[in-house]
Computed example of a mutant assay.
Amino acid sequence: MTETESAVRFRFGRDDLLRTRFAIAPLIELSAATYVLRLPGQFPEHRRFIQAASSRIGSLDLGLLYAVNPLGRRTWPNFNAPAPLTPHPDIGNELARVAATPPSTVVADVLRTYPGGVPEGLRPFVEDPEEALAGLVEQMRAFWDAVIDPWWARMTGFLEAEIAGRARRLVSAGGASAFTGLGRNVRWDGAALTVSPVAMASRDIDLAGRGLLLIPSALAFDVWPRVDGPWDPALTYQPPGVGDLWQRDHHAAGALEELIGRRRAAILRALDQPTSTLAVAQRTGWSAGGVSTHLAALRRTGLVVRRRDGREVLYTRTHAGTALIAHATT
């Protein structure tokens, strides 16, 4: 490191390596996607993702979302994408966290980012943070549904595989192995994890028993140290092989049918709304008894749930069932 290069050092105490942990962060993926879509030429590895997403956002109002994810900055607000508190949070719960951010935290975060004066696009977060926050969450939800959700099952599978492998190395071989490959500008010396150079002022962070949260991200570019309170220290990084994530599997057609059978696949696809056994039978032309047998198997494997509505029993796909369909068709 030269004298002119800035660095962030996470200093580990006796217990910090034991408390190092991993999480998937839907809010960070959402934030990263705003940069990828606005700067498509800088991210050729995401070409297919960009092509698919760009066609879905033309009618969306994203002014507040883009304002809190500014281009051309060395620092940016963090309140819209705090590090997760659980290993694999749901996007609905994470958006609720953002909506519940104290107005004082929003104002302080914006002023920290722009000490010389807040730009026009971010003035609402200083002048009326509660209203601006509510509008931001609406835009984040619309952006998620249009851009991230169609790929989320595939993205989480990729990230879970990364976490499993790195966590095994952390337990079996210690920090030197677990921190290898986080990025070309990341170094571990047995006592500190150093990120250098970074597009921010140098910082020394004493983890002080908190451990470090490692967040693999499919869409984050480079390595993002997260060092500003009131959030715990974290490091976002991009795992290797992310370009393969978006590639179309030319053998995927019929994959769901091959896995669970043609009839069960057709029934699972039909259950995007609560539906009775009789309705499925009428739609498919199969016997009600046969449909009932397939529904029972799908329910036992956690792909559908049922509930009674008066004299009818209605079946609906679970999140796992929807994710299975999405993964087999994207």
Rank of each mutant, 00 (worst) to 15 (best):
A265F: 07
T113K: 01
G121R: 02
R203K: 15
Q282N: 11
L27Y: 04
G241P: 06
W152F: 12
E94N: 05
A52T: 10
R14I: 00
R166P: 05
V313Y: 08
D222V: 02
L324C: 07
P115K: 12
H319V: 09
L259A: 15
L324Q: 10
L136M: 05
P26R: 14
D109E: 11
L65D: 13
E130C: 03
L60W: 07
F10L: 04
F22K: 02
A7Q: 13
A83C: 10
M140E: 15
R226T: 07
V110F: 07
D244F: 08
I267G: 03
I260L: 06
Y66I: 00
D249V: 00
T318R: 13
D16I: 00
L95I: 07
H294F: 08
Q282W: 06
A52L: 06
V304R: 06
N93G: 15
T330K: 06
A252R: 15
S202Q: 08
L39F: 10
A173I: 00
S59H: 13
P233R: 09
L136Y: 12
Q238T: 15
A265T: 09
R187L: 09
I260T: 05
L95V: 11
P233G: 09
R21M: 04
A266Y: 01
Q238F: 05
D189H: 07
R308I: 08
Y66A: 04
A53N: 11
D189R: 12
L27G: 05
I28A: 14
F158K: 07
A96Y: 06
A83I: 03
A266L: 12
P82A: 04
P233D: 12
D272Q: 08
V110D: 05
W224R: 13
F79K: 04
N69W: 09
G175M: 03
E3P: 02
I163W: 13
S55R: 15
G209H: 01
R311T: 13
L314V: 11
A270W: 06
V242Y: 03
A199Q: 14
T318D: 02
A252G: 13
R56V: 03
P233N: 10
H250P: 03
V242W: 01
A132T: 07
L256E: 11
A192S: 15
V291L: 08
L17C: 09
R11D: 01
D272W: 06
A52F: 11
T105D: 14
A208C: 06
V186P: 00
S217W: 02
P129E: 02
P216R: 01
Y66G: 04
R14Y: 01
A99T: 05
G243F: 03
N78S: 14
S217M: 05
H46V: 04
S59Q: 11
L30Y: 11
I163R: 07
L256G: 02
R14M: 00
R184V: 08
A328E: 07
R262L: 09
L245P: 09
R169P: 00
R283W: 00
R11A: 10
V242C: 05
A81L: 10
L17F: 02
T113S: 12
M155I: 11
H88G: 04
G13H: 01
R47V: 03
I91Q: 04
P44E: 00
I148Q: 07
L268V: 08
